[in-house]
Nucleic acid binder design. Sequence first.
DNA 1: TGCTAGTAGGGTAATTAGGGAT
DNA 2: CGTGTCCTAATTACCCTACTAG
Lengths: 67, 67
Amino acid sequence: MPRKTLQHDVLLTPAEVAAMFRVDAKTVTRWAQQDKIPYVWTLGGHRRYPEKEVRALLTRGATRRQA
Amino acid sequence: MPRKTLQHDVLLTPAEVAAMFRVDAKTVTRWAQQDKIPYVWTLGGHRRYPEKEVRALLTRGATRRQA
DNA sequence: TGCTAGTAGGGTAATTAGGGAT
DNA sequence: CGTGTCCTAATTACCCTACTAG
């Protein structure tokens, strides 16, 4: 059994982020391209999004009424 | 300060690397076969990945900062 | 020695990236 | 201007069986 002391950021797939925002996965990709959401790459060129960041944006968006 | 002799890279299992990238373990194996990620063999023919290298790949061009 | 989880293979379906038109 | 959809190519996920790690 591998060690359990290994820590790393939890990443989400485009589909998961899309489901959270209730938008199409393509839209999430556009947000990433516009640097509206941070992300990391897989070695194959797919994007993965930090759960922490996504959650923060979700909450932030809910309060974003003025601005 | 403890002695620093006999230092070697910490090796990660395919499952651990897969969790860090949020991909399937088979995908990590595929990257290894394509020489996209360095690895060493166990005597039984299983692959192990240097943590240092993995983290480097994960951080490379990753975690962009948002505007 | 036996036992359980993990890994290596190979195949096939499901996602994703990218561009473009709406 | 932002989003959802269509298309193709590439990448990834899930299915299986046999063998290794501990």
